[in-house]
Amino acid sequence: MSKSYQIRRFAILIVTGFTVILASCKENRDDSLRPSLNIPQVYDSVGYAFNTESMKPLIQQYMTLVSEARKGNQNGQYVSEESLNSAFTKGIFSLQSVTTPYFASRLQAQNNGFFAELSKASGGSFYPFDRSWEGGVYKSYLLDEYGLEMGQMIEKGLLGATLYNYAMSLTNGTFTTATVDQMLFLYGGNPRFLNSDNSAFYPNPDRFMAGYAARRDDGTGTGLYSQNRQAFITLQTAVQKGEDYDSYRDEALAAIKLNWEKINAATVINNIHASYTMLQAGQLDDNKRADILHLISEAAGFLHGWRTVETQNKKITDAQIDEVLTLLNAPYDRSAAVYRFVTNTDTEATKLTDAVAKLQGVYGFTNAEVESFRHNYVADQAR
């Protein structure tokens, strides 16, 4: 072995060793070597209005689509598939452009897409014990022939498939304080973090998933709303401080993702609790039956919207989503049978408790948490 070769080999070993040391230091930076972060008590609102202005056309399109779908809840009111699809695809900032491809396909599929099914049901009438061919209005809800409320599949599904999906896509590029503001806007919150969706008390209350977070939060400062408030403040502060604080940024972002998803699941559980309680109470009339079908459809919509969201952005798997949707009699890959909850209660009701147990297992909710999800704390506490 030549002397020059030995020198080169020794030099390579030194460089390799130095690289390993640097990598080790980088890994440890997230623990004892990282700088401390002084987290303020409030979210910095400077720039929020400007940074979120570009998001407003998207939200306007969402509200336009929801409003169009809700027209079908009126007896004799026809809603065209074309008008729904137009609200989804048109505008300065279309919903279609930021919705998961899977969910967009479920909305727009010819003949059996959510838009088509809602349109076919509109103008008709529905009765669970003698179902018409295409469905229709039952009390104040427009249901398809299987008792599934397509308006809720659309409205609640888009909260995950569009708003959450788009918020997460923003984190893939250059991460700035504007990104944080835009995520907060899509979440439905604002820098004041009111912990209330009550428009009677506030001119700009929480909405979308932030509004549901407020309903699930008992106001003690430890609930999901409060946890996400702290995570957003931490995220904003870390981004403001720069790359030396990236570990704090990444931890806060992970917390926001999980909390956002947990709030969605907690609201699904809330809907299931309410429908199961009515079923168990017995003495169902048409108003209660309609409410049950509405609640279960809403739960299915909330959950279905997370199907095919990228795996790095959610805890629940598509297979687990499919299991719960099947228990709700609203499977993703075949016709629903939601009506059976009110026509065959004795055999169907236990599916609802099984669905809650599945979600509890996925997210590790305690029994006390699952019980607390029965509440709308905004209403209970009049806040």
Results as ranks from 00 to 15, higher is better:
S4P: 10
Y5R: 08
Q6R: 14
R9H: 13
F18W: 14
L22D: 14
S24Y: 14
D31G: 13
L33I: 02
P35L: 05
N38R: 09
I39W: 15
F50R: 12
F50T: 13
Q61N: 09
Y62T: 02
L65Y: 00
E68R: 04
A69E: 03
A69G: 06
Q74D: 07
N75L: 12
Q77S: 10
V79G: 02
E82D: 10
L84R: 01
L84T: 02
F88C: 09
F88D: 04
G91Q: 09
G91Y: 14
S94C: 12
S94T: 14
S97F: 12
V98W: 07
T99R: 05
Y102K: 08
F103T: 03
Q110E: 15
N111C: 01
N112R: 10
F115N: 00
A116I: 05
A116F: 10
S125N: 11
W133K: 13
G135L: 01
V137F: 09
Y138I: 05
Y141A: 11
L142Y: 03
G151P: 04
A161T: 05
L163D: 06
Y166D: 07
S169H: 12
L170A: 13
T174K: 11
T176F: 00
V180L: 13
V180T: 07
D181P: 05
M183F: 11
G188E: 03
N190T: 11
N190Q: 13
D197N: 12
A200R: 00
F201V: 04
N204W: 00
N204Y: 01
N204M: 08
Y212L: 07
Y212N: 03
A214T: 04
D218S: 08
D218N: 11
T220C: 00
G221Y: 00
T222R: 08
Q227V: 15
Q227W: 09
R229W: 01
Q230L: 11
Q240Y: 02
K241Y: 15
D244E: 14
Y245F: 15
D250V: 05
N259Q: 11
N259Y: 09
W260N: 02
W260G: 02
K262H: 08
N264A: 11
A266N: 10
V268K: 02
I269G: 03
N270C: 06
T277A: 15
Q280V: 11
G282F: 15
L284F: 11
L284A: 13
L284D: 07
A290I: 06
D291L: 06
H294T: 08
E298V: 12
A300Y: 03
F302M: 12
F302T: 01
G305D: 10
K314H: 08
Q320A: 12
P331G: 11
S335C: 09
V338G: 06
F341R: 01
V342R: 01
A349Y: 11
L352R: 04
A355R: 03
A355D: 05
V356K: 05
K358D: 14
G364Y: 05
F365I: 13
E369W: 01
R374A: 01
H375F: 07
N376H: 08
Y377H: 07
Y377M: 02
Y377D: 02
Q381V: 04
Q381K: 13
